[in-house]
Amino acid sequence: MDRNLKRRLEARLEAQLRGPIRQRQDETEIRIQPGDVPDVLRTLHDAVDLRFEILADLAGVDTGEHMQVVYHLWSETSPDWLRVIADGLSRDDPRCPSATFLWTGAEWLEREAYDMFGIVFEGNRDLRRIFMPPDYTSFPLRKDFLLPDDAARSTGEGVRHVERSHAPAVVADDPAAGVRRAPAS
């Protein structure tokens, strides 16, 4: 746990932080609004006392209630991994600014998140499917995308259709639909 990093982050990103900075083991975690992603990432990348220059990972997450985009960053100024969570993307129309202006390599990572979750990264000039076929309509890593042997978690209809078109996720509002939800944290 790098207490110093916490102080620096609080000083630099006071306006953008949503919720407290969490620290556990060798990870520091901040939450921001999706709209603040460009500003925050630029600050983290460029600020002299932060200099998070290596984008370790960019992942989409479906909590069952909303979408998140999670960035893992590394800097030589801190012994911690920094996790930036852009929280609260709508499940019906998840949109998030792209990080490609800072890390060109985020392009494919965002394509993957789009392919798996349907998160639209605004500013990514090549946002198309990367693993699934181009005419595929579902987003497989969403929580309402059930596997054939998920009967136990389904609403009791036995085996359900695996691939569904990207319709607004009505099931998410229905607790009985069996969508797993992340712990309220």
């Binding site: 990348h45 200099r51 220059e53 500013g123």
Partner: peptide, 18 residues
């Protein structure tokens, strides 16, 4: 040697294409 990106001007502003 510190990890520092020499050419900051390489990052254009994010474009909201959509």
């Amino acid at each position: 040697q510190p990890l520092r990106d020499g050419n900051r001007r390489d990052h254009p502003e994010p474009v909201n294409a959509r």
